[in-house]
């Protein structure tokens, strides 16, 4: 396999005295979609924030394109080609769709590239083109999520960090947005690191998956293998075991504990 474009080694991050990530290591290869699954408070968002420089790790290394980037200012990280599409969309509410996209390209000054990226965004999200002049705060939740992803694309990133793109959206919209992410991955060879609670959608999209719990990675493997694993089926996909009744008399323990 090729050299990974993003390597995370033994990263530890703190919120004040609370250790939110306790030594996480993972690899992302070019053109791959990697999913990170986990419940609330597992440290998934913190991990993305640490990569994008919004938080600084206490320990560990983050290597991107053969350069160490841990602890860099966020705008330097964006310049290197890592863009973070935050949880909860976080669009600029009083600015138009067009202005939001322009800010996505803040780190670039190449006019031709920006115009090309804007056309690319409009080709994947035609609704944004229709709403160009509308204030982003007046868009629906799904449209705001599309804008957030489009805004991320405007930085012409080498890798996108996507934080819960399914949050608060209807199943149909989740399907639509994940379909577009899939197309971006196959057609543009876009590398993605995806954090999700919606394990089904995430594993469907990803090539490789990691499972996080209380700040650690407890399991990893190819997405289709994870999908078959008992633990994932029970705890993340909600598959109920049929069969012997006594199995249900105790709360099932996860095998990694």
């Amino acid at each position: 396999m090729t050299e990974p474009i993003l390597t995370i080694r033994n990263v530890e991050s703190f919120y004040g005295p609370i250790m939110a990530i306790r030594g996480v290591s993972l690899d992302v290869h070019v053109g791959q979609i990697v999913s990170i699954l986990g419940a609330n408070g597992a440290g998934k968002t913190t991990l993305l924030k640490t990569v994008s420089g919004v938080m600084d790790p206490e320990k560990g290394k983050i290597i991107f394109d053969d350069q160490e980037i841990q602890g860099l200012e966020p705008h330097k990280v964006v310049q290197k080609g890592i863009v973070h599409v935050p949880e909860g969309r976080e669009v600029f509410p009083l600015m138009t769709v067009d202005e939001n996209l322009s800010l996505g390209a803040y780190t670039s000054s190449n006019k031709g590239q920006i115009d090309h990226d804007r056309d690319l965004v409009f080709s994947y999200f035609p609704i944004l083109k229709d709403r160009r002049m509308q204030e982003a705060g007046t868009l629906s939740g799904g449209q705001q999520q599309m804008l957030a992803i489009g805004r991320g694309l405007m930085a012409s990133p080498k890798i996108m960090l996507l934080d819960e793109p399914s949050l608060g959206l209807s199943p149909l919209l989740v399907q639509e947005i994940f379909g577009i992410l899939k197309r971006l991955n196959t057609e543009q060879n876009m590398t993605m690191m995806l954090v999700e609670q919606n394990a089904n959608a995430a594993l469907d999209l990803a090539r490789h998956g990691y499972v996080m719990e209380v700040g650690r990675i407890v399991m990893d493997g190819a997405a289709d293998i994870l999908m078959q694993s008992d633990d994932i089926q029970n705890f993340y996909l909600g598959v109920q075991e049929e069969g012997a009744r006594e199995n249900r008399r105790w709360k099932r323990k996860k095998t990694w504990r």
């Binding site: 919004v54 966020p74 935050p86 600029f92 803040y106 780190t107």
Partner: peptide, 9 residues
């Protein structure tokens, strides 16, 4: 926060 994510110093 979003401004940070967009690479605005």
């Amino acid at each position: 926060l979003a401004a940070y994510y967009m690479g605005i110093p």
